[in-house]
Design a protein around this nucleic acid. Sequence first.
DNA 1: TATTGTTATACTCTATAACTATA
DNA 2: TATAGTTATAGAGTATAACAATA
Lengths: 160, 160
Amino acid sequence: MVAALSELPRPDPAVEELVGSVHGILQSVLHRVHPALEAERISMGQFWALHFVASLGSKGLSTVARYLALSAPSVCAKVDELEAAGLVVRHRAERDRRIVELRLTPKGRKVEARLWEEIATVVGRAADDVPRDDLATAVRVFQDLRARLDGATVPPRSGA
Amino acid sequence: MVAALSELPRPDPAVEELVGSVHGILQSVLHRVHPALEAERISMGQFWALHFVASLGSKGLSTVARYLALSAPSVCAKVDELEAAGLVVRHRAERDRRIVELRLTPKGRKVEARLWEEIATVVGRAADDVPRDDLATAVRVFQDLRARLDGATVPPRSGA
DNA sequence: TATTGTTATACTCTATAACTATA
DNA sequence: TATAGTTATAGAGTATAACAATA
């Protein structure tokens, strides 16, 4: 039993620290932004959908679904809600009429901007006394990591 | 309309980049770890509960709930499952018999270790060519941010 | 045939309210 | 009276399967 445990030493503590911190931060931030989301009458999931529709720029629904790591039907339902709220519009692409392109409405852009403003305030306050260089390094490291992780984008979800 | 938009400039782009990257990374990582979770027969939520039970060291259920940013009943249900799976044990504290302390079983420790090993592998692979110093800086920045954000731990959830 | 999106349906997760027991 | 935990129940969120339209 003891032997079995020693065959499973804690892996690189830096990784656990990093992932644990990341998880904790994201939770804290999103938790604090919750009131702002309620004020805009949208859910967390809708916010991230809005974010990817905005940042991917007129891509099809399934592309957005892939970035959200959600199934197409889930995203389809979310888009229904965002469309009903007047934040997003669908329209068929001409060159391939199977594809439904998504775009933010002006209202959608405003809502997204307000929410990022809120997040920036929360994070900015916490990052207040973090040296600018260190913060810039952290941003760069995370962009690199994301690029590397997204690079071999996870296949739809093949088992194991 | 244009004027209204210009009153809402994109906030500090570094913050949006950072939070966006963090969100993307966490999603990628957790998505990739999904098969390992399935192999251990536990859900993502159960994994994080396991993590906090392990890292908080014999704290009560509601403390764990606060760290998970979940309601007590939700965590209570999760602990039921973890206990049924033989990963966690409950026992009443003697000094205050209202409190239910939580601890990992040896099996729970092994499962947690294996999953962190998997996460470390995934992240480690992506972090392969990131300079060690930069990675260390990122870890430090995130620990600071988390400490700052957790510091004024979000109250139970007062509206607005 | 393969792909994009949608609809129908069931399951998991989470929360609020009400209850028990300790303090 | 207040706090820790549990039970009961309802609501979001998500997935899989089956379908429609287009390539």
